[in-house]
Design a protein around this nucleic acid. Structure first.
Length: 302
DNA sequence: AGGTTGACCTGGACGC
DNA sequence: TGCGTCCAGGTCAACC
């Protein structure tokens, strides 16, 4: 379901509601697919930690975890003991300062139908709930995902999780142009490639290509510098506008507060197959590009 | 290596 | 009402 604007909306909503809370208990469901890290590791990493911040990297929701004061000491000495016993190489005896362990992060990818809800523990647990995190306020953070394309994991990377690709909202026009140099695939497939740009999905690929006047099947490498600059501008404008409106809700998107986004009212081509183009009246077409349903106006996009 | 395709899941919409 | 078919905003692994 969610692309960058939807994930951003959820992350902001959840951050406002749970920042600073302590995680008291973690329950994980039986289905294995949603867990990318071992269940025991997720439980051990989350339990007792304070939620420092909830934010977004690409389409991934990132929960920064802090050790609480009392446990921080216990953990540090634990870590130290284990390290010196089991793996002396990683911490040389004569090192003056132990390397500060990277802060743990909880990663949540919503897949297609995933939802992250903050609610009172008295609220009935809906079907397809795969994780329940109890907070010290008594409320719960719940991960619900019917289709089970979503993924939960924990990481402790040096410098924090950064994802693979570049961030579309902050990349410069020059770097954006350079990303597609030599790419023989279609511009649509290139926009969806998360190792180039992260966060762009099917809706915003189609909508930004329409606003830039570029046909989705054009080969990325053959677009002019000017066309790519137009696409850069259109993509950022579309993403910002969608974030402002709380994202799109084509099927079952609901943000952390249970409020639907409104950007779908602004879709100009996405899911408008057979309807007249809002600019020129030409019938909107649907084709398949890179295995994805792709919507465009044959007159406005060249 | 870059590019393409199909598999992974469930549920909703649509046609008969 | 019920059944079959198709479609879905995302990733991966496996192939070319």
């Amino acid at each position: 379901m969610p692309e960058l604007p939807e994930v951003e909306t959820v992350a902001r909503g959840v951050d406002a509601r749970v920042r600073g809370e302590r995680i008291e208990h973690v329950w994980l469901g039986e289905k294995p697919e949603p867990l990318k890290s071992p269940a025991a590791l997720i439980e051990a990493t989350l339990t007792g930690k304070r939620i420092a911040r909830v934010h977004r990297v690409g389409k991934t929701i990132v929960v920064d975890l802090d050790a609480t004061d009392s446990e921080h000491h216990a953990e540090t000495s634990n870590h130290h003991t284990k390290t010196t016993q089991k793996d002396p190489k990683s911490l040389p005896k004569n090192a003056k300062k132990p390397v500060k362990p990277a802060c743990a992060q909880w990663l949540i990818h919503l897949g297609m139908t995933g939802r992250l809800l903050v609610c009172d523990s008295a609220v009935p647990v809906p079907p397809h709930t795969h994780a329940i995190v109890r907070l010290n306020s008594g409320r719960e953070l719940r991960f619900v995902d019917a289709r089970r394309f979503g993924r939960l994991s924990v990481v402790a990377e040096e410098g924090g999780f950064t994802g693979g690709g570049r961030e579309p909202l902050t990349i410069s026009p020059e770097d954006f142009v350079a990303l597609f140099r030599g790419r023989r695939t279609s511009i649509k497939a290139a926009l969806l490639n998360q190792t180039l740009l992260h966060g762009v999905g099917n809706i915003y690929a189609d909508e930004s290509l329409f606003r830039a006047g570029i046909r989705p099947r054009r080969q990325a490498a053959r677009l002019s510098r000017d066309e790519l600059r137009r696409l850069h501008f259109a993509l950022q404008a579309v993403l910002r506008s969608a974030i402002k409106q709380g994202g799109s809700s084509v099927s079952d998107y609901v943000d952390s507060d249970g409020v639907r986004g409104f950007f779908q009212l602004e879709h100009r081509v996405y899911m408008r197959t057979g309807q007249p183009c809002l600019v020129c009246g030409t019938t909107i077409r649907r084709v398949v590009v890179g295995g994805r349903g792709t919507h465009y106006c044959p007159t406005c996009q060249r």
